[in-house]
Simulated assay, not measured.
Amino acid sequence: MNDHMARPALTPVRGSARIAVAALVLAGAAWAARAVWQLRLAATGLPASGPPDQGEGRHRPLTALEDGYHLVSSLGDGATVLCAIAFLAWLWRVRDNAHVLSGQRPRYAGPWVYAGWIVPVANLWIPRGIVADIHRASAPGARLPRAVNWWWGLWLAGMLSGVGLMYADSTDEVIVRAYTDVHLLLAADAAVVGAAVACVLVVRALTAAQEAGMDTPPGRGDAQLP
């Protein structure tokens, strides 16, 4: 009975999971729209007036299609930011719940939930490690969902492709790439959209595991909680 009383209340995660899923769907749709616009640019071809950036600080007026791509790209960037905020809010909640369920401290300290995505080299494995650690604590003995590896592999492909999530080119330079070599852009877009879809499955799997844990009587190490 004392063990039952010792375990802190778990934080409900279904609401934050739904928000994260909705944000992931929105971000995936935004990147798909970006790919469609890149295909339209490639089909139209580079205008006779040349690229938007004419060099030496000179820019020609954008075509209607190029102007539309600027808008689609900006909306995609905004959707990606909203997705990151929603996903991290959900991730923090399930991480706290995993601590309660297992009675063990997380492998990675709290700041890594955020810093793990931006610290060079460490961002190649820490975010996946945090998710795997949460699943291990939430569902001891259960196999890690395959969606976790699909999500992380596609995420890395989109991040490291040089034309996906982390490209440093301006929007006008990306437009030129769409005119001259759209295939790499489309491959990066496909990786990002695939990562968003796989991440939806990850959110659903971890949320389901924790909801099942909420219905399980304590006794998996609750007495170890500080």
Rank of each mutant, 00 (worst) to 15 (best):
V163N: 01
P218H: 06
L39H: 04
W37L: 10
A20C: 11
A27C: 14
A142G: 05
L201E: 03
L41F: 07
A43R: 12
M1T: 06
A122W: 13
M5G: 08
M159G: 02
V81P: 01
W37Y: 14
V131W: 01
G219V: 10
A23T: 03
L41C: 08
M1D: 14
T180K: 03
P111W: 10
A43K: 09
D133T: 03
G141N: 08
I175A: 02
H135D: 00
L26V: 11
D181G: 09
D222K: 03
L91I: 00
T216Q: 10
A32N: 01
E56G: 00
P47I: 03
N97V: 03
L186N: 05
A23S: 12
D133L: 06
S73P: 00
R107W: 06
G110V: 05
R18I: 07
R93F: 10
L184R: 14
A6H: 08
P217K: 08
S16V: 15
V182S: 07
D181S: 15
A29N: 11
D96A: 13
A20T: 08
L206V: 13
R34L: 12
S161V: 08
R220D: 11
A20I: 10
L156K: 12
T171F: 03
L124R: 15
L26H: 10
G129D: 05
E56D: 13
H4N: 08
Q54F: 10
A191M: 11
A188C: 04
V72S: 01
A168N: 00
V163Y: 00
V121D: 06
A48H: 04
P120V: 00
A32I: 01
R105E: 14
M166H: 06
A42N: 13
V81E: 11
R146V: 07
V113F: 07
A32H: 10
A195D: 08
G45D: 12
L101D: 08
A205G: 05
Q54K: 09
R60C: 02
P120M: 04
S170Q: 05
A196C: 02
R40L: 13
E211A: 01
G116Q: 04
V72D: 03
G110A: 11
S73E: 04
H70M: 10
A205Y: 02
V176L: 15
Y167D: 14
P12Y: 02
A191E: 06
S73Y: 04
A122Q: 09
V192F: 05
L10M: 15
A137M: 14
Y167K: 06
G103M: 09
R60Y: 06
M5A: 04
H183Q: 10
A208D: 15
A209V: 07
D222A: 14
L156W: 06
G57A: 07
A187S: 14
A48L: 12
R7P: 11
V193I: 15
L62E: 01
L184S: 14
T207P: 08
W112L: 15
P145L: 01
L41R: 01
P127F: 02
T80H: 09
G76W: 12
E173T: 00
Y179A: 02
T11A: 10
V100Y: 04
P111N: 00
P140A: 07
G78A: 09
M159F: 12
A79K: 00
V182K: 02
H4A: 14
P217H: 06
A23V: 09
V25Q: 15
R107Y: 03
A30S: 15
I130H: 05
G158E: 02
A187Y: 06
D222E: 14
A212Y: 00
P226M: 08
D53V: 06
E211H: 00
G221P: 14
A6F: 11
A30N: 02
